[in-house]
């Protein structure tokens, strides 16, 4: 069969895989972002008796391979009585991994804000939450955009690990089609292109967001 026929034959499953990858990426980013922000804020400005255990947890997770964490959620949780669907397990595992790394990115951006501003806000009688929301975060967000987008791209690439816990994502569709037809270049190139398109889109989003925020906060062009 020609490449074209093969492609037509496996096109539906590849497209379905691409859709699953997009869904997985979107859901993990939507879960990980607020989680990471909460972890970063607690670790930078919160109660130290919460911050210290969180720090240990985040650093322990960052020492592990993502695949091992996914295996843990998918294979070990049933032993404790939580049997999860592959897609759910992948979403949980990837969100945990993503949030751990992302919280470190956010922490750096929050730490970059001069600590005198907390004291100044306190002297002006602002509450802690008010200080974070109106003083600290608006300054930290522009700093956070480049590392956030880099992290988002890493997380999109990491969704390919879901194929190892029986999720039919783009990588799984490509490797399945490859092992049936022995045509690796066609299908893996297609899948690779899919991932490159997603990260390309995120990179575009980054430059758009940077430009918009530079205008909104009247930052000097760098």
């Amino acid at each position: 069969m020609s490449y074209y026929d093969l492609f037509i034959q496996y096109y539906p499953s590849l497209l379905k895989g691409l859709w699953t990858t997009l869904l997985l990426s979107a859901v993990t980013l939507l879960i990980a972002t607020p989680l990471a922000l909460a972890i970063a804020l607690i670790r930078e400005t919160g109660n130290r008796w919460v911050a210290i255990p969180l720090a240990i947890l985040v650093n322990a997770i960052r020492l592990l391979p993502a695949l091992l964490v996914l295996f843990f959620v998918f294979y070990a949780m049933p032993q404790l009585g939580y049997r999860l669907q592959p897609l759910t397990a992948a979403m949980i595992g990837l969100s945990i991994m993503g949030a751990a790394y992302m919280s470190e990115d956010f922490r750096g951006c929050i730490a970059a804000i001069d600590s005198g501003q907390y004291k100044a806000a306190k002297a002006l009688g602002l509450s802690h939450l008010h200080t974070l929301r109106r003083i600290i975060l608006p300054q930290a967000v522009p700093l956070a955009i480049p590392p956030y987008m880099t992290r988002a791209i890493i997380m999109v690439k990491a969704t390919s690990l879901a194929s190892m816990v029986a999720v039919a994502d783009l990588t799984a569709a490509a490797s399945r089609a490859t092992s049936i037809t022995y045509e690796p270049f066609l299908f893996i190139a297609f899948a690779g292109l899919g991932y490159l398109l997603i990260s390309g889109f995120l990179a575009l989003l980054q430059s758009w967001a940077e430009a918009k925020i530079a205008r909104a906060y009247r930052l000097a062009p760098r």
């Binding site: 690990l161 490859t178 690796p184 690779g192 991932y195 490159l196």
Partner: peptide
């Protein structure tokens, strides 16, 4: 850009299935 933009797992599959071809 390509090698850093494609998931490592996919590149492993590419080597595993592609090199014999």
């Amino acid at each position: 850009w390509i090698f850093r933009g494609i998931p490592p797992l996919l590149l492993l599959f590419l080597a595993f299935f592609g090199l014999p071809v």
